[in-house]
């Protein structure tokens, strides 16, 4: 930045376009409230008064067409797995998935004798961030969401992707 240094006053910022887009895209991801089981209660608690998710820009949406992030909170069963896949396909690009809780990560406490439990939601949808815990505290979920924001900021949407 040699030629631009000390040329402008403090109210001018120079940065790459990727950084601006990353900042804009990451700071208000609307989440798809896909609460299945106990983790859904902690997701609701993190959206409520004490740990407010709205202050970091997350708003709950009930329809997959309006959401950016799908938080799979709870155990996914075989009966539900086909519907999870359908809902993921109904979301518009760019979309991200957070797997909340140990049931969605790997089957949780039901891994051994659960004939009807899907051992991890990443068998049906691609997952970006895993949040461990049974159930994870609201603070843990918020940290997972902030990690997702960091991940979105490092994406480069304007770069042509070579095959």
């Amino acid at each position: 930045m040699g030629v631009l240094e000390n040329r402008f006053k403090d109210n001018v910022i120079v940065a790459s376009l990727d950084k601006f887009l990353g900042w804009a895209r990451s700071t208000s991801p609307w989440y798809f409230q896909f609460g299945l089981a106990c983790c859904a209660i902690e997701m609701m608690a993190s959206a409520a008064s004490r740990h407010d998710l709205e202050r970091i820009g997350m708003m709950p949406r009930s329809s997959p067409r309006q959401a950016d992030v799908m938080i799979v909170a709870g155990t996914v069963t075989m009966k539900m797995a086909l519907r999870v896949k359908k809902l993921y396909e109904q979301m518009a690009d760019p979309k991200y998935v957070i797997s909340m809780g140990s049931c969605a990560t790997s089957g949780g406490p039901y891994w051994q004798h659960g004939y009807h439990v899907l051992k991890g939601v990443d068998l049906v949808v691609p997952v970006d961030v895993y949040v461990p815990g049974c159930p994870p505290r609201p603070e843990a979920l918020i940290e997972g969401l902030l990690k997702l924001q960091e991940k979105i900021q490092t994406e480069r949407p304007l770069t042509r992707k070579t095959a």
Partner: peptide
């Protein structure tokens, strides 16, 4: 129902 059948009785 049955979308959350987690096999409690089998466990």
């Amino acid at each position: 129902i049955g979308y959350l059948h987690r096999c409690f009785e089998k466990h």
